[in-house]
Amino acid sequence: MKAALDAKAREEGFAKMRVCRPDAIPDAAGRLAEFVDKGRHGQMGWMAERMHWRGDPATLWPEARSVIMLAEPYTPEADPLEALELRDRATISVYAQNRDYHDIVKKRLKRLGRWLLEQAPEEQIKVFVDTAPVMEKPLAEAAGLGWQGKHTNLLARDLGNWFFLGSIFTTLDLPPDAPEVDHCGNCTACLDICPTDAFPAPFQLDATRCISYLTIEHHGPVDEALRPLMGNRIYGCDDCLAVCPWNKFAVAATEMRYAARPELRGPRLADLALLDDAGFRAMFSGSPIKRIGRGRFVRNVCYAIGNSNDPALIPAAQALVEDEDPVVADAARWAVERLR
């Protein structure tokens, strides 16, 4: 059954599949509690509210006997670090340059799950993609899919680190795989490149300093000390992923809906600053970017304009200093003052 499931998973487009038990991550609860106790989760209150489920997958669905972990690559065609030099343009995290991966991966998981139930009709399944209180990365490590690197993201010797994770919890008792071990060695490339020093130590992340958190999860104004460090990153940050040496083994993405839309390959900051709510929703329909809303998005655009060192962008920021969203107005004023 497991061999047939692996073959079916690859047929569906997944690059790798491994299995673990729901109780395979006994240290996760303590690590999560320490992360929250130190306030490193910032405004992500949902991490604290659901710790009892997140820290122990066995409590999420006690009937589950196996967790099937799957990887789906979204490897970029070009080096995302190159776009950081185009200061009058925006950089958007690779995973968000086209369709929302939640929808694509979940549909794939459901198809695979339906096939599994056809083979074992007496069993049950639940599928998860990043939106439930499931610690995918520790589970994936326990299943042998890869390991959590010093940047806390999952990477694998045969995949690099450009891949999404999905999980299928099932009552079917499948033989588990051996957990993966750390293969980072003495490398600190991911820690060294971080623009905001968001890693207090190897294998630890302070989300409140991470640009991905600041541009996506953080509501309100960003600390003025951090704004200059954000550069032209307006949605997410790929720096620590992009420098990982294991990416020399990265698998090419096969899903065309992950390929960057032309209009999101280095869009002009001046154009993005013009977006009203309707324009924002139209531009990012079906995109993960849509969920942060026009206000937070244009706030990020203003910070990027302020970091552009391009006085020609002053009018774009000036037009927003009286924006009805006070956070956008604050960011626009900061940009204008910085450019002047």
Rank of each mutant, 00 (worst) to 15 (best):
R281D: 15
R54C: 07
A253Y: 00
A329L: 11
K8Y: 07
L116N: 00
I92E: 05
G185H: 04
C302A: 12
P326R: 01
Y235H: 11
G306S: 11
M230W: 05
H183Q: 14
K126N: 07
F164T: 01
V67W: 04
R257N: 08
D27G: 04
N153I: 13
D310K: 10
P200Q: 07
V127C: 13
A24Y: 13
E12V: 15
S308F: 05
R227G: 02
I211G: 02
T208D: 04
P195K: 04
D325K: 01
T254K: 15
A317R: 07
H218R: 13
K110S: 06
G295N: 15
L70Y: 00
P22V: 08
K137M: 13
A207H: 00
R54E: 09
R31E: 15
K38C: 08
L226C: 04
E255N: 15
R268W: 12
A304F: 09
F249L: 09
M230I: 13
D276P: 05
D27L: 13
H151L: 13
V243K: 00
R111K: 14
R114E: 15
E217C: 02
L191A: 04
G160S: 08
K2H: 11
A198N: 00
H151F: 10
E255S: 06
A273W: 03
A198L: 01
N186Y: 07
D276L: 08
M47V: 14
P138K: 05
L139Q: 11
Q43R: 09
M135P: 08
I168S: 00
R108S: 10
L60G: 06
A132T: 14
L241G: 07
D310M: 09
C194L: 02
A332L: 06
K150W: 05
L191I: 13
R10N: 08
S66F: 09
E322L: 13
W46S: 12
D56R: 14
F14I: 03
A83T: 12
F284R: 02
L172M: 14
N300D: 09
L264C: 01
P22A: 08
P62R: 12
P311I: 12
G293K: 14
K126I: 10
G231D: 07
S285Y: 11
H41I: 00
F249H: 15
I305V: 10
E82C: 06
T215M: 10
C184P: 06
R111D: 11
R294I: 07
L214A: 09
P288S: 12
L112R: 03
Y235T: 10
P62G: 06
E49Q: 14
F199Y: 14
L172Y: 09
S287E: 10
N186S: 15
R257A: 10
M44E: 11
R333G: 10
R10G: 02
E34D: 15
I305A: 04
A273Q: 05
R87A: 10
G166A: 01
L191H: 01
V36I: 15
P26M: 06
Q148D: 03
L154Y: 06
V127P: 00
R281N: 14
G45I: 05
M47E: 07
M1F: 11
P62C: 07
A90D: 10
T170Q: 11
C210F: 02
A304Y: 11
A4E: 15
C194P: 03
T75V: 03
T171Y: 09
P121R: 08
P26Q: 06
D310H: 12
D223N: 13
K110H: 10
T196H: 05
L339Q: 12
F14R: 02
